[in-house]
Design a protein around this nucleic acid. Structure first.
Lengths: 212, 212
DNA sequence: TGTTAAACGGAGGCTGCCTCCGTATCTTCG
DNA sequence: CGAAGATACGGAGGCAGCCTCCGTTTAACA
């Protein structure tokens, strides 16, 4: 199947073009109307039939994923940079704060995060892994420095972060979220209760490994 | 007959009966299928027409409110009881943990909380006030005892709590939520950054004195 | 028992989801 | 270039849930 048996024909030009159009339209529609927006509206805005939309993105989530992959990646990269900060706890705090800003900016981001945090979606596989790793590196460094309890997994933190941003359409949500995050990070400095107990692993395994 | 100036006719028996039936059915359906469940399914289960359902509860939220008012109240009463515990911080912790259990039990509870936390719904007015007061009393007592930072409002905490329960359909969510709550409560013991920049790197109180 | 206000129930209009397939268009190859 | 075949297009249509409207039924009261 390799060889010259390269079955792949050149992709049709219109297909490529339409895919792009749908993506562009989806970005606009999702950011404006939230993730609940009608897919038919997206198709219309893109100037394609609903069938075309579904061919390129078989599910709502597939489309969502395509739109928000980049955003998630950006958030993840920020963690990479912060890894070099001197104070590891502060680095973590800063990342979380940036996350809040991120959510504030992109209207659809919250939904994207929801998919990342929940399981079963297309975005899950990608973002969850990405963000988990991002947080993980920050968390690990702080834990290694002994400045932070080590039994909170990156997944845990991701969920907590998500939760604190959840009310993102309430008036003062941003200030609230920042305050809550501060409390949480402070809490992370306190040693876990089970001293004598199983203090084994640095990072606890998540309760269960989803496989979608 | 007590008061004949009371022009109001006695309410029709079938109306009363049907209302009750719908409520009962809604409780079952919502707890089983979440808040997204079809109202038509509720009507069918109740053995009434869809029109009857809508007459009694003009909106989905109205129905929801009727169903979850009691639950919210129960949660709120628990706080009342816990107010008498000796350790105020521990009381707060216990309330939050009970909340997790609550959400675990009633599948629709999460949605009810969402409405409480978000604004604009019918449930909001009632639950938000109720739960806020419940948390407030616990929080206040702990703050008064000097065991907890005092700049976190009941609303903040309610939202944080909600957030940590958000992923309630993930496999290990319950354990996760409990862990996150612990971290958060620990964080609450740390004095706020306000005063001197000096943020207590260590807990001042014998924080890790938990039983359970 | 008759009158009448109130409640019943479900048909029907609407919107959104998604599938299916006849038609249109593009790529490839002679 | 032009035909052949592969691929993509688009929207009709089936389904489900939301909610309204109104002709019919029924309970309360006299």
């Amino acid at each position: 199947m390799d060889d010259h048996t390269d079955q792949t024909r050149k992709p049709r030009a219109d297909a490529v073009r339409n895919r792009e159009r749908v993506l562009e339209a989806a970005k606009l529609v999702f950011n404006a109307g939230g993730s609940e927006a009608s897919l038919e509206a997206v198709a219309k805005r893109a100037g394609v039939g609903i069938g075309t939309l579904y061919r390129h993105f078989p599910t709502r989530e597939a489309l969502f994923e395509a739109v928000y992959r980049r955003e998630v990646e950006q958030l993840s990269e920020l963690a990479e940079q912060l890894k070099n900060a001197k104070d590891p706890v502060e680095a973590l705090r800063r990342w979380l704060r940036s996350g809040v800003e991120f959510v504030a900016t992109k209207k659809g981001m919250m939904a994207a995060l929801a998919l990342a945090v929940q399981s079963g979606s297309e975005l899950h596989a990608f973002s969850f892994e990405r963000l988990t790793k991002a947080i993980g590196s920050l968390l690990e460094r702080a834990a290694a420095a002994g400045e932070m309890r080590a039994d909170i997994s990156p997944e845990d933190l991701l969920r907590a972060f998500f939760g604190m941003c959840y009310v993102h359409d309430q008036p003062g949500w941003q200030a609230t979220a920042l305050r809550l995050l501060d409390v949480f990070v402070d809490g992370l400095r306190v040693p876990p209760p089970g001293k004598a107990k199983a203090r084994g692993a640095k990072t606890t395994k998540p309760a269960a490994k989803r496989k979608r």
